[in-house]
Each structure stands twice: as structure tokens, then as C-alpha cells.
């Protein structure tokens, strides 16, 4: 059995208020991209900070490349947390150069070009938009071809082009053996890059399965998103035949149902007084967010 790139056995880090993560066990091997998905406060960031060698775990065992030594692992790791801290007075290129030097003189040219920062490379970071800072942050993590990439909310602030660049880069590097752990609620991005998905709820990994398997589990289902004013009873919606889950989200409900024919009419009838109560309605094929809802009973929106 090959040594996993990342192995967590009952890893736990809890704060005094009980929040945090663990015990969590996971195993990530070569060529895998594991996405950690969960609502706010589910422990994603705490777990990613432990996996990214930033925060020590309180119990359990955490091995990077088969060794429990975070200091030795850092030379083979690329890490991105939510903060976009740079030396703002200096240029993007100068910042990147610093990280390149730390990584043993890695080449910065291709990354500047691929992240579409070449034109602004000589300008101070203080003049960068948030999206540009995020792209630079990701480029810095990719310097020196890390073997393991730990990314917390990597698509935050990225535009469509930036997201595509990141997805393509991860796919291309994965083919060369890169392993990545990505914490995000951007399910569209997860569906584009992940090979495995872990669902976190209240600091516990409640599901850990291949992406295709999870998506197959919601095949044939239908998702209805209702935006409505007050006065709609969730329990009535739950009693509609074929409705499997109803999650209350901001300004409405997400309904996940197995039945297709006649479903919409039944749901609308259940709401009643549509002119007064219903603001918007959308129906779509289910994806990872619906899978999360179906398996955990909780919505990723909160």
C-alpha cells in the first residue's frame, strides 16, 4: 500500500466554545483532489489550518508524506488561507520573488503569465484589486511545484477567467501527481476539480466519497428553489408527495424531490396565494449542493 501524501487519524482541534473540528480521519493519496464542503462554522477552516501545518492539532495523528513533522513537510507544501496579506508597498513581482527565493529559486515567469498578472507585475500590490491579490496568492502557493496543495476558499474573489485558470492548473498539475485539499462551498468549482468530496458538519466528517459517486446518488432528483415572503409553511412543503428534503435558506426554501411529474404543481398549490407569497422560483438538475442537502439534511447556504 503506498504511503498516503496526507493521513489524518482522529485529528481534533476544538476551541473553548466547543467549535472547531474533530475527531476527523482522512487519507489522501497521489493524484487526488479532496474537496471539503460544509456550511459556515462546520470546521473547514480549522481543519485546513491543521492540514496546512499552521495550527497544531490537539489529539490524533497527522502525517504529511508519512511523517508527523510539519516543519519538514513545509518545503513540499503550498498553502493558501483566506487572508491575502502581502507587502503592499512592493510590486506583485517583488512579492512573488520573495516566495520564489524561499522555495529555492523557483521560476516566477510562467506563473505571472498564467495568472494574467504580467501587465501589473511591476505595480505595487496596494494598487491591485482583490481578485488580483487572490490570483497572486495562488501563484505564490504554486511556486516550486509543491506536492501537496492546501487551499482555503480558493475561488474567493476570482472572476470567471481566474476560476478557469485555477481549475485548469489544478487539473494539469494533478496529472503530474499533485495532491490537493480544497476547502470551499463553491460546488460548481468542486464539481470541476475534485476527485473526492468530504462533507463536514459541526466539525465532523460525515461523508467522504468519490465525487462521481455522490453525484450519482442525486441522479433523477430535482431541485426547486423558492424565494418567498413570510407565510409559507415548510412542514406543508415536506408533506408534498415525492419531496425528500426541505431546507430553509435566506429568503426562501430549497426543495429536493424524487418525483418529477406534477411535482411543481403540487408545490405551488401547497404555497397558495402565489401572487402574494411567491417572489421567484427556479428548477434545476441537482448537483453537489443537493447531495449535501440530501445526505445531511442541511443546506450549504446556512
Amino acid at each position: 500500500m503506498p504511503t498516503p501524501v496526507l493521513l489524518a487519524e482522529a485529528v481534533s482541534r476544538r476551541y473553548r466554545n466547543g467549535r472547531g473540528v474533530g475527531p476527523v480521519s482522512l487519507r489522501v493519496e497521489g493524484g487526488e483532489v479532496l474537496a471539503l464542503v460544509g456550511p459556515n462554522g462546520s470546521g473547514k477552516t480549522t481543519l485546513v489550518r491543521c492540514l496546512g501545518t499552521r495550527s497544531p492539532h490537539q489529539s490524533g495523528e497527522l502525517l504529511w508524506f508519512g511523517k508527523p513533522d510539519p516543519r519538514r513537510a513545509r518545503g513540499r507544501l503550498g498553502v493558501v488561507f483566506d487572508a491575502t496579506a502581502h507587502v503592499d508597498e512592493l510590486s506583485g513581482e517583488e512579492n512573488l520573488q520573495f516566495f520564489a527565493r524561499v522555495r529555492g529559486g523557483a521560476s516566477t515567469e510562467p506563473l505571472l503569465r498564467d495568472a494574467e498578472l504580467t501587465e501589473v507585475a511591476g505595480e505595487p500590490i496596494s494598487s491591485y484589486s482583490y481578485g488580483m491579490r487572490r490570483r497572486l496568492l495562488l501563484a505564490e502557493a504554486l511556486l516550486g511545484d509543491p506536492e501537496l496543495l492546501i487551499l482555503d476558499e480558493p475561488t474567493l474573489g476570482l472572476d470567471v477567467v481566474g476560476r478557469r485558470w485555477l481549475a485548469d492548473t489544478l487539473a494539469e498539475r494533478r496529472r503530474r501527481g499533485l495532491v490537493a485539499v480544497v476547502s470551499t462551498n463553491d460546488t460548481e468549482f468542486v464539481e470541476a476539480v475534485a476527485t473526492r468530496v468530504g462533507f463536514l458538519i459541526d466539525g465532523l466528517l460525515v461523508q467522504d466519497a468519490p465525487l462521481h459517486q455522490l453525484l450519482a446518488s442525486v441522479g433523477g432528483l430535482r431541485e426547486i428553489h423558492l424565494s418567498c415572503r413570510a407565510g409559507v409553511d415548510a412542514d406543508l412543503l415536506r408533506r408534498v408527495a415525492g419531496v425528500e428534503r426541505v431546507a430553509e435558506v435566506e429568503g426562501g426554501f430549497t426543495v429536493l424531490a424524487t418525483r418529477r411529474d406534477g411535482l411543481l404543481a403540487d408545490v405551488l398549490a401547497c404555497i397558495g396565494e402565489l401572487d402574494r407569497k411567491l417572489v421567484d422560483l427556479s428548477v434545476r438538475e441537482p448537483g453537489l449542493a443537493d447531495c449535501f442537502l440530501r445526505l445531511t439534511g442541511r443546506s450549504l447556504d446556512g
Partner: peptide, 10 residues
């Protein structure tokens, strides 16, 4: 968050 970034460098 700058020290956070330095802390995960080799």
C-alpha cells in the same frame, strides 16, 4: 495575516 503566511513557509 502576514505572519500566518510566513508560518507555513519552509
Amino acid at each position: 495575516g502576514w505572519l500566518d503566511r510566513l508560518a507555513v513557509l519552509p
